[in-house]
Amino acid sequence: MNEALLILGMFLVTFSVRYVLFGVAGKVRFPPWLTTGLSFVPPAVLTAIIVPAVLLPRGELWLRADNPWLLAGGFAALVSFWRRDLLTTIVAGMLCFMLLRFGFGL
Results as ranks from 00 to 15, higher is better:
I49V: 15
G73T: 02
G105F: 07
I49M: 13
V28W: 01
L99H: 04
S80E: 08
V28E: 04
R18V: 09
L99R: 03
L46T: 06
T89Y: 02
A65V: 13
S39W: 10
V51L: 06
W69G: 00
A48T: 07
N67W: 03
M94V: 11
P68S: 00
W33R: 10
V91G: 01
G26S: 15
T35K: 13
V13T: 12
P42G: 04
F15V: 12
G105K: 04
R29Y: 08
L78F: 12
P31V: 11
T14F: 14
D85W: 13
L55E: 00
R83G: 00
V45I: 15
F75D: 02
G59M: 05
N67V: 00
S39D: 13
G105E: 11
G59Q: 02
G74A: 10
G73W: 00
L99I: 11
A72H: 02
T88W: 08
T47A: 15
F30W: 06
N2A: 13
F97D: 00
L99E: 01
C96S: 05
L63C: 00
A92G: 02
K27V: 05
M10W: 06
T35E: 11
T89L: 03
T47V: 07
T36S: 12
L46R: 05
I7K: 11
V79R: 01
L61I: 01
Y19E: 13
A53Q: 14
L71C: 04
A53H: 12
C96V: 04
F15M: 11
